[in-house]
């Protein structure tokens, strides 16, 4: 069940993401103040659903941003589809979903989904068709002409997912997409994401701090620990698919939840934090450097 941590599996034609020896440090005035990532090796195959889990501040978001070429690693390499991450980004290989939906108020729901398609030069009829198709997929086909502020938080996040999928990116990067939602909505959204993943066959890297969410969704759970941010465990989730309400009641499900919790504990976090993370209430604070100015 457990793989040896910190080893990149050999590259196969099916490898979508290959991370080798990645470090990321943040410096201020030339002095390293934070080692966010240290010695990260990870390979992700086509069609996998990989979750990154770990205590707040262990570098989950940073790792996701390194994969998506939103921050450059301090050392090591990231390849996506056999290309450097920067090239993959220029080739529009990434769909991003953040904790906040980041919808633009001045665009209707439909036009929000069309934004990446406009930027990528899809013609008008194709944009319309794709937006409709994607919004149908997330079951918001009746809300094309609404504005984001007219939708609930869960609906807005579904629009963000539709937008991320609209241009058929090779890989979907999701950073605690349901962290701001209540538990009931979160479980519904989990089911929805699995349905979309199965329908599209896309590769997903999913950051969460909820153990049940990670186990329920993933084919593999990558356990991280803080200071410095490292991968301490990789746990295969061999629950049958399709997964549904019954999955959360299987003995195997509970075994895996326990396994992840223990891996987190071994990774050096206190029992109390592990307990909090299990019920998914451990708040995580994301700090993103505000980039003032244009360009």
């Amino acid at each position: 069940m457990r793989q040896s941590a910190g080893r990149a599996s050999p590259t196969t034609p099916d490898t979508v993401v290959r991370i080798a020896g990645v470090d990321k440090t943040f410096a201020r005035d030339g002095v390293v103040v934070t080692t966010a990532l240290s010695g990260i090796d990870l390979s992700i195959s086509r069609g996998e659903f990989v979750s990154l889990i770990g205590p707040s501040g262990c570098g989950k978001s940073t790792l996701l941003r390194v994969i998506g070429d939103l921050v450059a690693p301090s050392a090591g390499s990231v390849e996506v589809n056999g290309k450097p991450a920067a090239q993959a980004r220029r080739d529009r290989d990434y769909g991003m979903v953040f904790q906040a939906p980041v919808l633009f108020d001045w665009r209707s729901v439909e036009d929000n989904v069309k934004l990446p398609l406009e930027l990528m030069g899809y013609d008008g009829p194709r944009r319309t068709a794709r937006a409709k198709e994607m919004l149908d997929l997330v079951e918001l086909g009746e809300f094309l002409k609404h504005h984001p502020y007219q939708l609930s938080g869960g609906m807005q996040q579904r629009v963000a997912i539709a937008r991320a999928l609209s241009f058929e990116p090779a890989i979907l990067l999701m950073d605690e997409p349901f962290g701001a939602l209540d538990e009931m909505t979160r479980e519904r959204m989990n089911q929805e994401v699995l349905r979309i993943w199965e329908a599209t066959g896309t590769t997903i890297v999913f950051v969460t701090h909820s153990i049940p969410e990670a186990v329920f969704l993933s084919s593999r759970v990558v356990v991280m620990s803080a200071r410095p941010g490292r991968i301490t465990d990789v746990i295969d989730i061999d629950l049958d698919r399709p997964r549904g309400v019954a999955t959360r009641e299987e003995p195997r499900y509970f075994q895996l939840v326990t396994a992840v919790r223990e891996a987190l504990r071994r990774g050096g976090m206190g029992d109390e934090l592990a307990e909090r993370m299990e019920d998914g209430s451990g708040a995580s604070i994301d700090r993103t450097a505000a980039e003032g100015g244009i360009g």
């Binding site: 941003r65 998506g68 939103l70 980004r89 220029r90 080739d91 529009r92 990434y94 769909g95 991003m96 953040f98 906040a100 980041v102 633009f104 934004l115 990446p116 930027l119 990528m120 990067l173 993103t288 450097a289 505000a290 980039e291 003032g292 100015g293 244009i294």
Partner: peptide, 16 residues
């Protein structure tokens, strides 16, 4: 012009 959500800029960057 400058008080744009950082996540919005990251989103646009992810679209290159």
């Amino acid at each position: 012009l400058t008080s744009v959500e950082p996540a919005a800029l990251e989103l646009m960057r992810s679209y290159a």
